[in-house]
């Protein structure tokens, strides 16, 4: 799908969806010290990530999606082992 000169001739949504159990490698885009949870923003979709530290913001982390609510484009994920 993604290789070659004629790949990705498509319009990609601002709100990508994910399925529970899906493993993703993403940049951690934020961290809330108060809750101890990180945030991975993919386009305008937001995943709340547990099991990560503030020092990992702007770094690639591997996460597993635990739940995802399509209407609100939000979900929860945990750092994969």
């Amino acid at each position: 799908m993604s290789k070659g000169l004629f790949a990705n001739w498509r319009f990609r949504t601002a709100y990508p969806s994910f399925e529970p159990g899906q493993e993703l490698e993403v940049y951690l885009t934020g961290f809330d010290e108060a809750s101890g949870k990180g945030e991975a923003r993919i386009g305008d979709t937001i995943l709340e990530v547990e099991g990560v530290g503030g020092g990992q913001v702007d770094s690639l982390v591997v996460i597993r999606v635990e739940s995802f609510d399509k209407p609100s484009h939000r979900g929860a994920a945990r750092a994969a082992d």
Binding site: N8, R12, T13, P16, Y27, L60
Partner: peptide, 9 residues
């Protein structure tokens, strides 16, 4: 969003 790719793609 034409041609846009995310790190998850």
């Amino acid at each position: 969003g034409f041609g846009r790719e995310y790190t998850t793609d």
